[in-house]
Amino acid sequence: MQKIIGLIGGMSWESSAEYYRIINELVRERLGGLRSAQCLMWSFDFAEIEALQSTGHWDDATQEMIKAAQRLERGGADFVVICTNTMHRMADDVQAAINIPLLHIADPTAERMKKAGLSKVGLLGTAFTMEQDFYKGRLINKHGFDVLVPDDDDRKIVHQIIYDELVQGIVNESSRLAYREIIDRLVARGAQAIILGCTEIMLLVKQSDSSVPVYDTTTIHAEAAVEHSLAG
């Protein structure tokens, strides 16, 4: 029997659609035939969330995330998945407000990297994810990684491409080349792997764009959700 996956999405819907696709493909692969995932999704109007992010109203954003998780719990979800890296900034507050587990996006990625014997990794994501401690701090303090982020100018490029292009479904070859150059600079500083720490980056960057392993948090998180759903 499947556990019901509660998805908090819409941040952006472009990557949330990938979660839905990957989760259902994996369930069909695992169970066969016409099988698909049992899941619920609460999808935000991302313009409202982005406005709270850009103006620093994180407390208001936290309350919105808590309400979304509680809606999913009331709807029958057995656990919650936040379909974005950035909004894991309030993951602890969301978990404290519900009575079902929250599957943190950083943990399954970290476990895979540890199994691969990695110790120093590069992190790409929104400016919030690259600059604040809620994500990289978890990788450092809980999982023991040395985490590298791009320099100031490169962080601006990574962030701008996410918000001006990827969350709007725009994929430009010039942006792919810019990301490749940024990845190369992280590798030159010693990064043994690159974490795609924004769920939209997988729309732009593939393994072929990096000389070191790429860890796509969208796919890994979705896979972990399926494993949790089908466990037992």
Rank of each mutant, 00 (worst) to 15 (best):
R28A: 07
R30C: 05
R30E: 14
L31C: 11
G32A: 02
G32T: 01
S36M: 03
A37R: 13
A37K: 06
A37E: 08
A37N: 09
Q38C: 01
Q38R: 14
L40C: 03
M41G: 01
F46P: 00
E48H: 06
E48M: 00
I49N: 02
L52D: 11
L52F: 01
H57I: 00
W58Q: 04
W58A: 05
D59I: 08
D59G: 14
D60P: 01
A61C: 15
T62R: 15
Q63N: 07
Q63A: 10
I66K: 12
A68P: 06
A68N: 12
A68R: 12
L72F: 14
E73D: 09
R74F: 02
G75Q: 11
G75V: 12
G76D: 13
A77W: 07
D78C: 07
V80F: 14
T86Y: 02
M87V: 04
M87P: 05
H88A: 03
R89F: 07
R89Y: 03
A91W: 07
P101N: 09
L102N: 08
L102C: 09
L102I: 13
L102T: 05
L103N: 04
L103P: 02
D107L: 02
P108V: 11
T109Q: 01
E111P: 00
R112C: 06
K114Q: 14
K115D: 11
A116E: 15
G117L: 02
G117C: 04
S119A: 14
S119N: 12
K120Q: 12
V121Q: 05
V121I: 15
L123F: 05
L124M: 07
L124K: 04
T126Y: 13
M130C: 14
M130K: 09
Q132Y: 11
D133G: 03
D133R: 09
F134N: 03
Y135P: 08
G137R: 12
G137M: 10
I140F: 00
I140K: 13
N141W: 00
N141T: 06
N141H: 06
K142G: 01
K142T: 13
V147K: 04
L148C: 11
L148E: 08
V149A: 13
V149N: 09
D151V: 13
D152P: 00
R155C: 07
